[in-house]
Structure formats: C-alpha cells, structure tokens
Amino acid sequence: MGLLSKKDLKLITDPLADNNPITIQVLGICSALAITAELKASIVMSIAVLFVLGVGNVVISLMRNVIPPKIRIIVQLIVVATLVIIVDLVLKAFAYELSKTLSVFVGLIITNCIIMGRFEAFALANGPWKSFLDGIGNSLGYAAILIIVGFFRELLGSGTLLGIKVLGDPIEKTGVYAYGYENNGFMLLAPMALITVGIIIWVQRSRNEALIEDN
C-alpha cells in the first residue's frame, strides 16, 4: 500500500469487525435502529453519517489545539450541527420523500454517540489524516450493521429490496408466495430491529470468543 501504511489501514479495517462501533463500542444505536425498516433508508443514513463523521473528525482534529477543554462539548456540537444541517438541506432538495421517512432522525445524527465518541476518543488526540481515516472506518462499521439489519428487515418484512419485489408479488401470488409464503409484518415493527442487532452480536461473538463479556 503506497498511500496507506499498515497502521493507517488498521484504522479503517478495525472498526469493521473487531471494534465495531455498534456491536462492540455500543455507540450510535439511537438513530441506527429506528430507520432500518427499509434498506434504502439505511444506506442513505450511512452515507450521511459517513460524511458527517469524516468531515467532522478532520475539522475537530484541525481545531484540537485551540479548543478550550472546558467548552469542548459545545464546540463539538456546533461543528456537528452545522454539518448535519448541510446533510438535511441536501436531502430535502434531492430526496424529499426519503427525508420525510427519516424525519427527525437526520437531526439526531448530531447526538449520535458515535460522532461525539470518535471526536473525544480520537480526533482530539490525533492529526487530521489519521482522524479522517478513523472517521471513515467507524462510519463504514456503522454502515455495515445498518445495511445488514436493513437488508433482513426489508426482505423478511415486506419481501422487497430497495423497493424491488425480489420474492414475487404477495397479491398476485407469484414467486415464493405461490408456495404459501407470507411476509412477516412483525419485522417492520420497532422491536425487531433490537432483536436483529442482538442476533448479530450473538453471531459475531460466538465466532470471536475474545469479545465475550464476563457479565
């Protein structure tokens, strides 16, 4: 790797699995779960977080020597809020329907713990390039969980992916519906998002024994 040293690469790949922001660090669950009933919303949310965390980490890292420690939380919140307003206005301009589905959850990226958590834990202590990579890595880890959850909830809940009917038509009884398959509407309800993430955690930790908590 010419551009990325081995250490830099680790910054990106680590949060994808063994240090995943959602399943291991327990950050950013708030806005992650509510919007995962559709795959499309999950993808857009992931892109929004990617942008906010990538740019935000760089900005905070550049400012890290001038921010007085006592008011750093307010400064961080203002930086994030500005970036989120940009995301919100772009969404409203180019994807109005989707911005309605996401409703207040775009605004809640501000208080998404993943962002404040990475600012505090990484950007305040490291240079801009490393912080950028850390931001990208963590938001990709976040995106991975969001997309897995969104994939299963949309597939099992409404039999579609990105709005395309992959399992056939439930009303005309084509595809798998011809054999008596029914959509599981329960998957679309809020509690199933939690249980899906619980199962992902279960699978991940049973593959990697080192991650198991001792109560």
Partner: peptide
C-alpha cells in the same frame, strides 16, 4: 456466553418494546 452483556440486553429491550406496544 456470546449473548452475555450487550446481546441479551438488546433482546430483552426488544421484548420489552413488544410489551409496550
């Protein structure tokens, strides 16, 4: 083992949410 801590908390919260529905 793998469910200990975070995993079981997620699943319990899910069940509680079903109750609250």
């Amino acid at each position: 083992g793998p469910l200990r801590g975070l995993g079981i908390t997620f699943i319990i919260t899910g069940l509680m949410a079903i109750g609250f529905m």
